[in-house]
Write a protein that binds this DNA or RNA. Structure first.
Length: 401
DNA sequence: TTTCTCATTTCGGCCACAGCGAAGA
DNA sequence: TATCTTCGCTGTGGCCGAAATGAGA
């Protein structure tokens, strides 16, 4: 890092806000994003420690740095030795999570409190910012993985790892958490397979609908106390763990690479279904906000390690994503264009055509009725514009009649 | 089934000006 | 180095026209 907070300029920046395109310290992150309900929806993640201008998507265990997609690619794809580096997905978050909740999202702090306890109740308690939708959809993804890759050993983690499977890393879904994963959403569907909420999903419309239905950040009432203090301790703890080589326990999940990697089987399997693989590791699938989930759709990032330790990366789209992009393009464009370009022409029987058309109708209706609130950044300007004289909608000079 | 026409919806530009930040004195 | 001044840019809302979309013949 080393870069200063874009807001206060005093503290070291730690968090990258996609919506604001800004790097913030934790304190400013809290202040800025607790201002109103809209700002609470901003999807944030750790800032890339290399370029400090992009959101980090993975954490390299060997180099001990958080890297954005680009830096990760530059640093690992071109080097045979570096390509074997163990990397962990860094999750997004939104709202104003407490330190404990952030620790759950990133799993690099206060891990001991949850180690060894993997009950649904605890996870739900920790992840209060996570919507049931996100939880369910990921759970559905797990289920799908298990069905589509029966030969792949998905559940290959210790109890300790399991505790962080949900809260810390989306790259390695855990079948063991099926009671949690198979929530009402997945269970209520009549579709042969649970819904997926990922770029490779066969029915993004369904996903987005569910996201909007189930996500209600306004209901989240989160308070942050002793933010800096907590994180100071937490970071020290994480560094200590890193020095001890306890990357697994630090992140609470399996690594992305390695001989027993969960993803390995997926890649090794011939005719890899990218869609399914995307379900394995959406960029921010653990994020609670629709924001982040949409980002996941737009930026399907795959970093899978094959049998030779080579990393295969896919990125659907590159470049900056504006706030407007998140509004709709993420899902609708993909949806309207049919199958995502990265979807292989595999079996099309994931969803019956009737269900799909129904999903199309539901999606269109919902899209029609959806309202995107406009954020007024300067109330004073708004107040002045409201009282300013106009002619045919245009402002006129004060002196003019 | 395709093509054309009309109605409806969506979206971007325009306007004045206070306020903010950068640059220079 | 600190303070002040100047300049340029930003954002605000309602209306209009062009473009896109949908429905019907």
């Amino acid at each position: 890092m080393g870069y200063m907070c874009d807001f206060c300029g005093d503290q070291r920046s730690m968090v990258y806000c996609r919506s604001d395109a800004a790097c913030l310290c934790l304190s400013c992150d809290r202040n800025v994003h607790s201002a109103n309900a809209l700002s609470k929806r901003h999807s944030r993640t750790l800032a890339c420690e290399r370029c400090s201008s992009q959101p980090a998507v993975v954490k390299c265990a060997e180099e001990r740095v958080s890297l954005c997609q680009n830096c990760d690619w530059i640093g690992h794809a071109h080097s045979t030795s570096a390509s074997t580096h163990k990397r962990q997905t860094i999750n997004c978050y939104s709202g104003c999570p407490s330190a404990a909740e952030l620790s759950s999202i990133w799993s690099f702090v206060l891990n001991t409190s949850s180690v060894g306890e993997s009950t649904c109740e605890q996870e739900m308690g920790l992840r209060s910012i996570a919507s049931s939708s996100a939880r369910n959809t990921l759970g559905a993804a797990e289920n799908t993985i298990s069905q589509n890759m029966p030969s792949t050993k998905v559940n290959d983690v210790s109890d300790n790892d399991r505790s962080g499977a949900w809260v810390g890393n989306s790259s390695t879904p855990q079948l063991s958490s099926a009671p949690c994963a198979l929530g009402p959403l997945a269970g209520s569907t009549n579709l042969p397979l649970p819904k997926l909420c990922c770029p490779g999903s066969k029915d993004p419309a369904v996903c987005e609908d569910d996201i909007y239905e189930d996500l209600n950040m306004d209901e989240v009432d989160l308070n942050i106390e002793n933010y800096e203090e907590l994180f100071g301790v937490a970071l020290s703890h994480s560094e200590e763990l890193l020095e001890n080589g306890g990357i697994d326990s630090l992140f609470g999940t399996k690594n992305m690479s390695g001989a027993d990697s969960n993803c390995q089987g997926a890649v090794a399997a011939e005719g890899l279904s990218v869609g399914v693989a995307s379900a394995i590791q959406p960029a921010c699938s653990n994020a609670a906000s629709a924001d982040s989930l949409m980002i996941s759709k737009r930026e399907p990032i795959l970093c899978l390690t094959g049998t030779q330790g080579h990393t295969i990366s896919f990125s659907g789209l590159t470049g900056e994503s504006s706030a407007g992009d998140y509004q709709d393009c993420g899902a609708s464009s993909m949806f309207l264009m049919g199958e995502p370009p990265w979807c292989p022409p595999g079996p099309e029987s994931f969803f019956p055509s009737v269900s799909r058309s129904n999903a199309v109708m539901r999606y269109k209706e919902k899209k029609k009725s959806r309202k995107f609130e406009k954020t007024v950044r300067y109330a004073s300007r708004k107040a002045r514009a409201d009282v300013r004289k106009r002619v045919q909608g245009r402002f006129v000079k004060t002196g003019d009649a």
